[in-house]
Design a protein around this nucleic acid. Structure first.
Length: 280
DNA sequence: AGTTAAACCTGGTTGC
DNA sequence: TGCAACCAGGTTTAAC
């Protein structure tokens, strides 16, 4: 479910409601991708700081007041995997079969529901995202980072020989575009997803960067994409999927030229594209 | 070293 | 109706 827009929508839906909330308890369900990395009880008493995002990861600071608090300061690095979503509620229903992490706080219960359990909640000591860098080390720049320019983007693409679709999915050149938005951005940029990244010209790289930004920005404004089950922490679904030109539309007419949208498999993921609008 | 397959899981949909 | 096969928003790990 969650690419950058969905994760950011989620972040915005929990940041303010949980600000300065106290952790009252933790409940763990089945194992997620990685172990929590600390005793669940050790989180009790912490104060939740501003929730941040890096790529598709969320960072929730667990602050301590040194005066009368022996607990360790750090934070929780959270990932929604393929099927995860967070919900925040004052009257939560009993934990279901797919509810694998509950953070009981003074401002409601934050719950991670994740049927496939590709998601994660990992403790990391330290007050910033950076120390949790083990998992974040290979991430490329944020799509809206001003330091990411057509020049740097083009230079990075120039070092990759894989198909551009695969390179975008790797998140090593720019983070945030998953399968839906990589397909949509390539469509908007008029680039064939099979084109090897290093062969992309400077002007086309500039156009692709702009397409990635406009696609992610539009998705964010529409609350993300809800293909099956994505919801923000208040239960609101996204609306971007209705705006998708090619994703999930194999066999349908391209909205621009009418050519039949095709599907192919790259890196074991479906790629949707228009063979006429998108060129090598 | 760089690129590609396999793996982690569950559930919904499709087709015989 | 039953059951096998395939599909799904991600990312690490192992293998060419």
């Amino acid at each position: 479910m969650p690419e950058l827009p969905e994760v950011e929508v989620t972040r915005r839906s929990i940041d303010e409601p949980l600000r300065d909330a106290r952790v009252l308890g933790v409940r763990l369900g089945k194992p997620l991708r990685w172990p929590l990395g600390c005793r669940p009880e050790s989180l009790v008493g912490a104060r939740i700081g501003p929730v941040a995002r890096r790529g598709k990861y969320l960072w929730m600071p667990m602050l301590r007041d040194p005066a009368a608090d022996a607990g360790q300061a750090g934070g929780l690095l959270m990932h929604l995997g393929m099927s995860g979503s967070l919900s925040l509620s004052n009257l939560p229903p009993p934990a279901g079969a797919h509810d694998h992490f509950d953070l009981e706080t003074s401002r409601g219960l934050l719950r991670l529901t994740d049927p496939r359990r590709f998601g994660a909640v990992v403790w990391s000591a330290g007050l910033d995202v950076a120390p949790a860098a083990g998992l974040l080390a290979s991430l490329g720049p944020e799509p809206f980072d001003p330091a990411l320019t057509p020049s740097t983007f083009h230079a990075d693409l120039h070092t990759r020989r894989s198909p551009i679709k695969t390179v975008l999915l790797s998140g090593e050149v720019v983070v945030g575009a998953g399968n839906i938005y990589a397909c949509e951005a390539l469509f908007r940029a008029g680039i064939d997803p099979r084109l090897r990244a290093h062969l992309i010209s400077r002007p086309r790289a500039a156009r692709l960067l702009e397409a990635i930004r406009s696609t992610l920005a539009q998705a964010l404004a529409l609350g993300g994409s809800t293909l099956r089950d994505f919801r923000d922490a208040h239960g609101m679904n996204g609306e971007f999927q209705a705006s998708a030109a090619v994703y999930g539309r194999e066999g349908q007419a391209c909205p621009v030229c009418g050519t039949t949208v095709r599907r192919l498999v790259q890196s074991q993921r479906s790629t949707y594209f228009c063979g006429r609008c998108q060129r090598r």
